[in-house]
Design a binder for these strands. Structure first.
Length: 427
RNA sequence: GGGCAGGUUCCAGAGCGGCCAAAUGGGGCGGACUGUAAAUCCGCUGACUACGUCUUCAUAGGUUCGAAUCCUAUCCUGCCCA
């Protein structure tokens, strides 16, 4: 299977420019994807582009990972209803550095290899280009009519919020990136999410007009859940790749909670498993969905890829402990070390031990530790039967908590809903 | 620069002097069911020292016993004209 066939089978191909497949067959091709430095860490939304680069490199081509130090200063308006907030320079630089560090783990940068991955930052070339030079040398080649016709900006042009010139410029800036990489690094292919199609095509257009060259592109569908909601969010917010932001346990849980329908497509997209094995697994899953073989395998593959074998095993251990039925007794039997081990990925909070010795009502405890943002919310959730302590449901808001609740004389395990655990440590 | 329409709680969007912490929908959270799934049903959704009090309807002033609702100025947005 060649790269394109592979990606097509995996459902990772949306649009493709004619000739792309032939180009990839013809020679080792350099290709790039851009990453937005909107945060210091990548999140699972960026996983697909990363995987595209990995597949590309596996197929013998040369991947370039571009971090958008310059484009990040402008903000991509594609399909967005509103203008984005501008990031200040310091944050931007920090973000670029953070993202760079993460990307380095997933691609092979070994310079001895002909198709070694490379990292580039578009700030490096944009910082030397003056505004006047840019509009004369580059802006001349593209008409505003062409830029406005893009679907990606339609929402803003027809919408109620307008679009600043700054944001409108974005596609030209990104287009220039492609042009620059084409001339500087013989990069002939750009990939990205399907929302990037408009920006990417502006790049190939620029290459055609300014350099009389031919460049190619393909995009990957944006990942959505079957119910149409946004992929990559949980109750806790974004799922990050950085274990300090989203613990491997939470990360594992995210994948484990995938719905049946989604799991079938995710296993193709997010793992490197091959077709026969995937087909077999899906068949098994359809026969006995309650065993959730598919979700478990998916969670395993992705967690191992991002966090490694060891973290995965911790996550499984913690999950089985927290979700087994007789956990209430089990909790009591754990040693402190085991307890902490299991709770490694669970958010932790502290209380003064003296408060517990005096006895403290649940509501205050939950709010003051920060498990709940306010007393009101803590109260309402407790009243709705949504909070458990050490795996036993808290019955009323008058419940007073004292040192008797402490596990190993030190910890209390709170639970909001079924899946959200919080460990409180008495100090 | 001129004219017009707007800026409401997470979002969309009602309200247009007291009955407004603000309809309705979406989202979110929680409960039941289940497979840590989907669908469905139910509850909650500004804060607090909580049958009451406090801070909210772009911002700052003003009118009034009383304003999200009226007036003035400012800022922001859209549309149209120049």
């Amino acid at each position: 299977m060649n790269l394109i066939e592979e990606l097509r089978w995996r459902g990772m191909l949306q649009d493709m420019m004619p000739g792309t497949e032939e180009q990839l067959q013809k020679e080792m091709t350099t290709a790039y994807i851009g990453f937005d430095p909107t945060a210091e860490s990548l999140h699972i939304g960026s996983l697909v582009p990363i995987l595209l680069l990995v597949h590309l490199q596996k197929a013998g081509h040369k991947p370039l990972a571009l971090v958008g130090g310059a484009t990040g200063m402008v903000g991509d308006p594609s399909f967005k209803a509103e203008e984005r907030k501008m990031l200040d320079l310091d944050t931007l630089q920090k973000n670029v550095a953070g993202i760079k560090a993460q990307l380095e783990r997933f691609l092979d940068f070994d310079p001895a290899k002909p198709n070694a991955a490379e990292m580039v930052n578009n700030f490096d070339w944009f910082q030397h280009i003056s505004f006047l030079d840019f509009i004369r040398d580059t802006g001349k080649h593209i008409t505003v009519n062409y830029m406005m016709a893009k679907d990606s900006v339609k929402k803003r042009i027809e919408g109620d919020n307008g679009m600043s010139f700054t944001e409108f410029t974005y596609q030209l800036i990104q287009g220039y990136d492609f042009y620059h990489l084409y001339t500087a690094k013989n990069c002939k292919l750009q990939m990205g999410g399907s929302d990037q199609w408009g920006n990417i095509v502006t790049g190939t257009e620029l290459i055609r007009r300014k350099a009389s060259g031919e460049a190619f592109a393909f995009t990957c569908p944006l990942i959505k859940k079957a119910d149409g909601t946004k992929f990559g969010k949980t109750e806790q917010g974004t799922v990050w790749l950085d274990p300090k932001r989203t613990s491997p346990y939470m990360f594992y849980q995210f994948w484990l909670n995938t719905t049946d329908v989604d799991a079938e497509s995710y296993i193709k997209i997010f793992t490197f498993m091959e077709q026969p094995e995937v087909d077999e697994l899906i068949a098994k899953h359809r026969e006995a969905p309650h065993l959730r073989l598919l979700q478990q395998r998916l969670a395993k593959e992705v967690t191992v890829f991002i966090h490694g074998e060891e973290s995965y095993e911790f996550a499984v251990k913690a999950s089985s402990l927290l979700f087994s039925n007789d956990t209430a007794e089990l909790l009591l039997s754990l040693t402190e070390e085991q307890l902490l081990d299991v709770m490694a990925g669970v958010p932790q909070f502290e209380v003064a031990k003296t408060d517990l010795e005096a006895g403290k009502d649940v509501v205050s405890l939950l709010a003051e530790t920060g498990i709940f943002p306010s007393k009101g919310e803590a109260r309402k959730t407790v009243q709705g039967g949504g909070v458990s302590m050490n795996k036993n449901k808290i019955e009323g808001i008058d419940t007073v908590i004292n040192t008797a609740a402490l596990l190993r004389d030190k910890y209390i395990l709170f639970q909001k809903g079924k899946k959200n655990y919080y460990l409180v440590k008495a100090i």
